[in-house]
Nucleic acid binder design. Structure first.
Ligand SMILES: [Zn+2]
Ligand SMILES: [Zn+2]
Ligand SMILES: [Zn+2]
Ligand SMILES: [Zn+2]
Lengths: 235, 235
DNA sequence: CCCAGTCCACTGTACATTTCG
DNA sequence: ACGAAATGTACAGTGGACTGG
């Protein structure tokens, strides 16, 4: 069958090695899972079992799961019903001799999945110049659209919850306009644009508030002239 | 060749699982539902389709539904009209290649998605007082452990990449010590503690650098007395 | 190979919202 | 008007493909 070439099976990297024929065709994998009777893939945690039961046992032990049977604690566990009751499946794993000591701790990510291949990483279109230009451009857009002027000290009031939400909404809108002024951002597909903004919206809000409040003492100034102080809350 | 024939490859169940993609083989998932043309979320029951059609097919097969068309059995099925005629929608699912064998049996119950909606949210043990106390406590620990003194202006140098990584590592260790001084944090289970710190490590680093640099102009001061300037990079 | 591990496409369930009878 | 059923989104769980010692 046309097995797909994987990363380290590049023909140029391998000498023509004949697949070794196992003498007598003694396939050790013709056994059945001791838990669910599916085809076994070897010994797992001390028991001949399938990949499904292997994974199920590992996950259950790692998370120290306590399942409950909704029936009489005697559910049948076979390939088709093995997901019906996790209590009985796990019980059968232990009964069959699976040892939870054989489950190891989580390892580091390997992530050769997405090999990233030491790509030089295209940094064209990423410069402080462009960021500054985007900053200016977005500030223009925002000032015309939102009609915001410099925050007036006289306007300051202690922020209510609504003020906080309101300023977050406003700042997030500004964030989007700003991002759209960065050429490299626009080269991303829409999904990636959204994901990028979503994941780092928190950092942006924080950085904005930090900058805005850098010369103040004892309180944080939000984008809508309300301030957050220690402990106090606006009415 | 003896390819494994297990659960998903059982001819009665479906899903020819493709071998893992080799690098470079990007599948952007920007495809459309073969049934209704909505945005697809992957292959479902063997057909590139949307979540709506996926759920519709599963429910229909599980309950062995027999629908009837009230028109001419040739209704158009698209994003807007897909719910107009179940008969034609299901027919189109099968025509597109959805396999009812791929619909599995009901499984065990899983943990509740929204564990308890509007619970009063326990805020005892969450106060500015406690945070300030934690700040002081962690500062003591850090100063004895890391022997850090106030950053000396004379030590300042333009940060190399190594300086940046080094300061991040240092700040993250400080972050952990700080969190461990917050009583409410210690009440979380270890997994939640880790998750919380991981997700918001970025914000903490940002906030730390912002505070440290609040009176500086044109550069950011890192925790190890190195500074990041615009454009310049330490040798 | 063997058997630990990880990865991730694809299953499933939970439930707010919408539609139907 | 209202309860029951269907819909579709969000996320948890599964297991086969894969890596590594
Ligand atoms: Zn099994
Ligand atoms: Zn049971
Ligand atoms: Zn669809
Ligand atoms: Zn129809």
């Amino acid at each position: 069958m046309g097995k797909k070439l994987t990363f380290n099976e590049d023909p140029r990297l391998l000498s023509e090695r004949e697949p070794r024929l196992s003498p007598g065709d003694t396939s050790p994998l013709n056994q059945l899972c001791a838990i669910c009777n599916d085809k076994a893939t070897g010994k797992h945690y001390n028991v001949i079992s399938c990949d499904g039961c292997k994974g199920f046992f590992r996950r259950s032990v790692r998370k120290n799961q306590k399942y409950a049977c909704r029936y009489g604690r005697s559910c049948t566990v076979d390939r088709e019903k093995r997901n019906h009751c996790r209590y009985c499946r796990l019980k059968k794993c232990f009964r069959a001799g699976m040892r939870k000591e054989a489950v190891q701790n989580e390892r580091d990510r390997i992530s050769s999945r997405r090999p990233s291949f030491e790509e030089p990483a295209d940094v064209s279109g990423l410069s402080v110049q462009l960021l500054l230009r985007a900053e200016l451009a977005s500030r223009q857009i925002d000032s015309t659209r939102l009609g915001s002027r410099e925050a007036d000290v006289a306007d300051r009031r202690v922020a209510t919850h609504a003020d906080v939400f309101d300023s977050m909404k406003q700042q997030l809108l500004i964030l989007v306009e700003w991002a759209k002024c960065i050429p490299a951002f626009l080269q991303l597909c829409l999904e990636d644009q959204i994901a990028l903004l979503r994941t780092h919206a928190g950092e942006h809000l924080l950085l904005g508030a930090s900058w805005r409040s850098r010369h103040l003492h004892g309180f944080v100034l939000l984008g809508n002239s309300s301030v957050v102080t220690r402990g106090a809350q606006g009415k």
